[in-house]
Design a protein around this nucleic acid. Structure first.
Length: 522
RNA sequence: GGUGCUUUGGCCGAGUGGUUAGGCACAGGUCUGCAAAACCUGCUACAGCAGUUCGAUCCUGCUAGGCACCUCCA
């Protein structure tokens, strides 16, 4: 199996990935709080950890990928004053909280499906694990790292910090935290401002509440990930991912809870993706400067000059390293759109070349996609090959470099740069046949199948979702282009151009090549 | 105030102690009825200052700007 390196936030270094159980990977990623539409900022971890999931599987690991849905416990503003985000939305829209959860969970899934993000192995909800969370609160109390105050239970950070290091992940000391923590207005039930809630007492009018040994209430936000991670992945597991903004306090608190309750930090590799920015500023719900995914797909937002397809978004994200900030702009998205289309066109040409050369070319990604059914086989049919059948040194090199890049902390921009080298070779072969051997073509087909479609998860949006309508359209196109070819043969340029213009208006672009006319559907 | 990150060519965005990242845009060329695509060629940058070094965009220090976290946030 190839060596994989990942940047571990705990050490701030690239480390060789060694799983706890050989051949198996347990991976947990913080999912969305479902009180509004997913935005571009959610697409980033969605795609990033999807690529990680796909890459690990492609490298031959059996992966259990857990990504939660937060549907309770996530408060706004300060934990003492804030209102539960879901409950607030429900109050404003006069809905049952679970109606809010249902709607936005569905919409989140839909956006992820369009981005070709594979469903995780398990998608647990906080509200489905209240009993487990209560049990853990009890254990933390027993261990002496929490205290009860006015019906709520808080984690005793100072006490914990005497034995362990609170701040180990975010690289700060409790002194730093103390200095930076805003003083509260004195009404707090907490002993210290940096203590965080494990269980919150619910006011009588509160809808989302459950009975507990400390009275009716609801679990603290940080608790759910600790509890569900342990439940589905065990006492210790391999990878925990999430946005960099979750590093402190969310993930720091998870570590503290884990130590307090099960005597281990619980996670071996912490992986954090960076933020999407707009005009250099973080895109976020709290800042109100976000663009939702439905808006992006439809183009209906004041800062958008056009609509962008899901694959354009995916490619845009892939073109930057996951640990760098990624700045949104129409110009950058348009550049991504063109680059993406260029790769897809080459993929189609490669299929032609392969069938001409008698190379089997399943080339996935062109067939109809339906993530509603969990069709992992779409990207799991192969494990990463150790050798490639290419004859030309150039193609061998591309093949090697692509895998090297992916295994070097998931460097997708570098991998893509070598894919573009492959695109150039395919285009050259199309111009002048015979530059590639059969082995070369086989290697390229594999590269597109396994990497472009499989690991990077791109798919061809231009190809029809429906085999039958595709057949009909292609039959019609043959007919129309045949007529146009006749017009051209008679040098009837007005007619041939008019046909081309009409088709263009329908979103069909016609290109004349030496071998006759070609067309692509936008 | 504390902690950490960052500053790359017209734009996006990798990376490295000495050699062309890549994409998009732009200019010229080939091809073509025209167009598009493709291919070829050109555009060679690393905030500023000082230091280490045979040599720094890449190491060190300082200066300036930007960002993130410290409160909910992917």
């Amino acid at each position: 199996m190839r060596d994989l390196y990942l940047t571990n936030t705990l050490t701030r270094k690239k480390e060789l990935f060694i799983p706890i159980n050989p051949g198996h990977v347990g991976m947990y990623v913080c999912g969305p709080t479902v009180y509004g539409d997913a935005h571009l900022g959610h697409a980033r971890p969605g795609v990033t950890y999807d690529v990680m999931f796909r890459l690990l599987r492609h490298l031959g690991y059996k992966v259990r990928y857990v990504r939660n849905i937060t549907d309770v416990g996530h408060l706004e503003h300060d934990a003492d004053e804030g209102e539960d985000k879901i409950a607030k939305k429900a109050r404003l829209e006069q809905l049952e909280p679970m109606e809010v959860v249902q709607e936005y969970t569905f919409r989140y899934h839909d956006a992820m499906r369009r981005l070709n993000v594979a469903p995780p192995s398990i998608e647990p909800r906080a509200s489905g694990h209240i009993i487990e969370q209560i049990e853990v609160v009890k254990k933390i109390l027993e261990a002496g790292f929490a205290y009860i105050s006015n019906g709520s239970v808080y984690f005793d950070v100072e006490k914990y910090n005497k034995e362990f290091h609170y701040g180990i992940l975010s690289g700060r000391s409790l002194d730093d935290t103390m200095e930076g923590t805003r003083s509260l207005d004195g009404q707090s039930d907490k002993h210290a401002p940096y203590d965080f809630a494990l269980w919150k007492k619910a006011e009588p009018q509160h809808i989302m509440k459950w009975p507990s040994p400390w009275g009716d209430g609801f679990p603290g936000w940080h608790l759910e990930c600790s509890v569900m991670g342990e439940k589905y992945l065990g006492n210790e597991f391999d990878i925990h991912g999430g946005g960099m903004d979750l590093m402190f306090p969310h993930h720091e608190c998870e570590i503290a809870q884990n130590e307090a309750w099960r005597g281990t930090q619980g996670v071996h590799y912490w992986v954090h993706n960076n933020m999407v920015t707009i005009n250099g500023q973080k895109m976020g719900k709290s800042l109100g400067n976000f663009i939702t995914l439905p808006e992006l797909f439809s183009g209906e937002h004041k800062v958008l000059t056009q609509a962008y397809t899901p694959m354009t978004i995916r490619f845009f994200i892939l073109q930057a390293h996951y640990r760098s900030t990624l700045d949104f702009s129409n110009e950058a998205l348009q550049a991504a759109e063109k680059g993406y289309k260029r790769i897809m066109q080459a993929a189609r040409d490669l299929r032609e070349i392969a069938s001409g050369a008698g190379v089997a070319s399943p080339i996935r990604g062109t067939e109809g996609h339906n993530a509603c059914q969990m069709d992992y086989n779409e990207f799991l049919s192969d494990t990463a090959p150790e050798s490639c059948p290419a004859d030309s040194e150039g193609i061998k090199d591309i093949f090697t470099k692509v895998y090297d890049a992916l295994c070097d902390d998931m460097n997708t921009p570098i991998a893509l740069s070598y894919i573009f080298d492959a695109v150039k070779l395919i285009n050259t072969e199309k111009e002048k046949k015979g530059t590639l051997t059969k082995g070369d073509i086989e290697t390229l087909v594999r590269l597109f199948d396994d990497v472009v479609y499989g690991v990077l998860g791109l798919r061809d949006e231009a190809s029809s979702d429906n085999g039958k309508s595709e057949k009909t359209i292609s039959g019609l196109m043959d007919m129309v282009l045949d007529e146009r070819a006749k017009a051209k043969a008679e040098k009837d340029w007005p007619l041939s151009d008019s046909i081309r213009d009409h088709l263009k208006a329908l979103g069909i672009e016609v290109k004349d090549t030496k071998d006759g006319a070609e067309w692509t559907l936008d």
